[in-house]
Design a protein around this nucleic acid. Structure first.
Lengths: 325, 325
DNA sequence: CATGTCACTGCAAACGTTTCCAGTTTCTGG
DNA sequence: CCAGAAACTGGAAACGTTTGCAGTGACATG
């Protein structure tokens, strides 16, 4: 049916071992190499990756587990990871957990079955390090990782970014600052803590809420938050929440920035298209992806290394949504 | 090293064949099934997918080749495909061509090597049917497909959508209607032809330009287009172009809809957050993905079927960007 | 000339499954 | 009670590679 290495060997008049070595990096004579190459062309041979993987016990595939690819942050991340992976001759298996620990666990299983050579993921808060270790492959955590984790991790400097946001809002005259943070991730928790700490440094009260990181959940949480006691500024811990906040302001005819200032994480494509533009922390997402892949390849190469943590700085982009009143 | 089916067989006191049947759907006694299941648990066995694929010649993976996952249309599409695929017990291999025929060809090669059991793709205009057939796997085209293609395809009713856009703009008083269309896809070509036909039916002149489907290229093309002769309405054949047009209007302080009406394809998340909201054709993207996967599975099941074409209707969503002046 | 080294090659054994085949037991109908 | 079918099981042969081992010559070194 399909043409195998045997057909190539026959066409080139050599053994299958020699073909294998000619295609790989084993030592072969120039003459044989030439014959094998033309035999490959003549027969239209394509190596069977399953056979190769079975024999060599290496898969040339990495897993990428994110919450939801439709979140632009993860979209960008995945694209960067794919590019880096293909450049290194590896393929990517993408999974969406929808922040559901059960799906997360299922996909970890699947990755183990696939014998991926490594794993990049944005874990939920509920994933135990033990479960992660049980996968038995190198793992790199991106965007979300407890500070004291045993795995390599690439994260934003959340302390600095949170402080910058708070400082900026205070400088622009806001005093009643509320925040909404993702409830499922270590990152959400971290940003909340850092925002509260920064507020405390200014001697201001902290009003923070948690929500599942989805547009609808965020929208509902914000509605409730604004209901209780109207703040004069809102800090949103991710792009979905920023969008939900903006939508809510439109619906309630809340004037930005006059009545309410808006600032958050993630510089999505539309943040400078709306009026006023939204003040955000831009995260170096592409760099997250590249660094993650690089860390993973290093880890695959040398399993025994102390876990490495890469902390990247965000960039505060000031727009009209936080203009002084 | 890793635990194989042999270990399970030994633990359960049966042969490997029986374990295989117990795990698959072969006939086994209840007693043996029980023993095998507990042996699997006890040993922590995970089937080796490479071995399974090698032996059974089936890969349980489908390829998905799109232009760029960062385009929200493809993001949504890929998510829908993934969901449908995982539901059917299949994995997805995602590739981004960036509209580059060379990369497209390379990924087709790769898919062949992977022995994917099927392929879903949004081809560039330059991909020859012959090259596609050479992959030797079932292929389903999504979003982009010549009407007379030999492959299954899922497409938008571009004729109707284009006519609706034109009719709406004319009804709202516009007469100098220009369009920008993606140059790399059959869809861009089709929409251009249909828009021009609709304009002709109204006895109006057609002014259309082509551009690579990226934000920057679209932005540049639009700048040039507006330079030459200012239209009173713009039709944009994809979400990137809509965004580029809006950005350009902001930069040039062109008033929407007073000076220029904006309408296009793809209802991205921000189209109702900007002011005025953008009039668009909403495409049933999730349905594209589901239908594509379903068609692919059908085709995998029965190779010999006449090619089937699914045409889905878009929905015109009228917003302020095309309000009558 | 003897010896060792080196570059190259082929043989054959894996890698972990599934599946064909044949064999054994148990059930069913007459 | 027998024949035949049906249900279940194990043995062994694949699937297409890579790779350890051993063998061949060629060539340099002493």
């Amino acid at each position: 049916m399909s043409v195998s290495i045997k057909d190539v060997a026959r066409a080139a008049g050599v053994s299958t071992s020699t073909v294998s070595r000619a295609l790989g990096k084993g030592p072969v004579s120039a003459e044989v190499l030439r014959r094998v190459e033309s035999a490959v062309l003549a027969t239209g041979y394509r190596p069977n990756l399953a056979a190769r993987q079975l024999r060599s016990q290496r898969s040339m595939a990495v897993g990428l587990i994110v919450a939801d690819i439709r979140n632009p942050f993860f979209t960008q991340l995945s694209r960067a990871v794919e590019d880096a992976a293909y450049a290194a001759g590896m393929r990517v298996l993408l999974c969406n957990t929808d922040e559901d620990p059960a799906r997360e666990a299922m996909y970890l299983e699947l990755m183990a079955e696939e014998r991926v050579s490594g794993l990049i993921m944005t874990p939920t808060r509920h994933l135990s390090p033990a479960a992660l270790a049980r996968v038995g492959r190198p793992v790199v955590l991106v965007d979300r990782a407890m500070p004291e984790t045993d795995f390599d991790s690439i994260v934003l400097d959340n302390a600095r970014a949170s402080a910058e946001l708070v400082d900026h809002l205070v400088a622009s005259g806001r005093r009643r600052i509320a925040g909404l943070f993702g409830s499922t991730s270590a990152t959400g928790m971290e940003r909340r803590a850092e925002v509260e700490a920064a507020l405390e440094r200014h001697g201001l009260p902290a009003r923070s809420a948690l929500s599942l990181p989805s547009f609808d959940a965020g929208h509902a949480a914000l509605a409730e938050l604004l209901e209780r006691e109207m703040p004069d500024a809102l800090i949103l811990s991710n792009g979905l929440f920023v969008r939900a906040a903006l939508k809510l302001c439109h619906e309630r005819r809340i004037a930005i920035p006059a009545q309410l200032a808006l600032a958050g994480f993630d510089d999505e494509v539309w943040t400078d298209l709306v009026d006023p533009g939204i003040t955000v922390i831009r995260q170096p997402v592409e760099e997250f992806g590249r660094e993650a892949m690089q860390a993973l390849l290093a880890r695959i190469g040398a399993a025994k290394m102390r876990p490495r943590r890469v902390v990247l700085a965000g960039e505060l982009i000031v727009r009209g949504s936080t203009a002084p009143v």
